[in-house]
């Protein structure tokens, strides 16, 4: 892990709705994630975790403050630039996997490469290779419906990695999996996804995987209330 910052959020504010229906999801969040770091965002439901990773991933605009990913602030990018930046630099892993059900495992993994302009066949070949590396060699041509939850999450991880992004955001990657499978998925994420120039931000409720984190940021009511270096340091 280097000391350089992958993500730097300063006084980030995000509000949903207007007037009486106004809800302040982020109330001036400060957060730093270093290159090569696995940062976990934890906290009760509705505390703003998902909003924060949406802002970090550039799929949600914040209202105030600054949020830089590798020194680039999404607020200062045009819509097209933002989409391009996301396509090249961000990988996503979702709670419900969000694989395209009509595509095979390899085709799903190939999607980010195709979005970035690679020819389909070349992208699918590279996807098949990567699936081999995450232990899914024999499932390359399987549809998502033919895969178990753990296998689908492996495919989703491969999809998040295939285009070699610099930041991977994961939303509850283990919540739909049993303890053993969740553990394996986290081991896989930590082994293949982390690198010196890449950072991982994981939103989770699952305390069983806190041990995989380099640092844990605890959120409550739109604030980061604590950043701990291990689960043991966390206030209860």
């Amino acid at each position: 892990m280097s000391g350089e910052l992958a993500v730097s959020c300063t006084k980030v504010v995000k509000t949903y709705g207007t007037d009486d229906a106004k809800v302040m999801a982020l109330r001036g969040v400060d957060l730093e994630v270093r290159k090569g770091e696995l940062m976990m965002l934890v906290g009760p439901s509705g505390c703003g975790k998902t909003t924060l990773i949406s802002v970090i991933a550039g799929i949600l605009d914040h209202d105030e403050g600054s949020c830089k990913v590798y020194e680039r602030d999404f607020q200062h990018m045009s819509g097209r630039e933002k989409v391009r930046y996301r396509a090249e630099n961000i990988g996503f892993v979702f709670q419900a996997y969000n694989l395209l059900p009509a595509l095979t495992a390899a085709e799903n993994v190939a999607v980010p490469l195709i979005i970035n302009g690679m020819r389909r066949q070349e992208a699918v070949d590279r996807a098949a290779d990567l699936l081999g590396k995450v232990g899914m060699k024999d499932k390359v041509n399987s549809l998502p419906v033919q895969l178990s939850g753990g296998q689908q999450q492996r495919v989703a991880i491969a999809r998040a990695l295939i285009h070699n992004p610099r930041l991977i955001v994961c939303d509850e990657p283990t919540s739909a999996l049993d303890h053993e499978t969740g553990h394996k998925v986290m081991e896989l994420l930590k082994s293949v996804a982390l690198g010196d120039n890449r950072a991982l931000v994981i939103v989770t409720h699952d305390s069983r995987i806190f041990g995989f984190a380099d640092r844990i940021a605890k959120m409550d009511d739109g604030h980061i209330v604590q950043v701990a270096n291990s689960p043991d340091e966390m206030e209860h």
Binding site: A57, I59, R80, V83, R84, R86, A87, E88, I90, F92, F94, N98, L100, P101, V111, P112, I115, N116
Partner: peptide
């Protein structure tokens, strides 16, 4: 819609 959302999040442009 969610699939389109996934594609959009991953960087697919509105034009595509």
């Amino acid at each position: 819609l969610k699939q389109f959302g996934v594609l959009k999040a991953m960087g697919t442009t509105n034009g595509t």
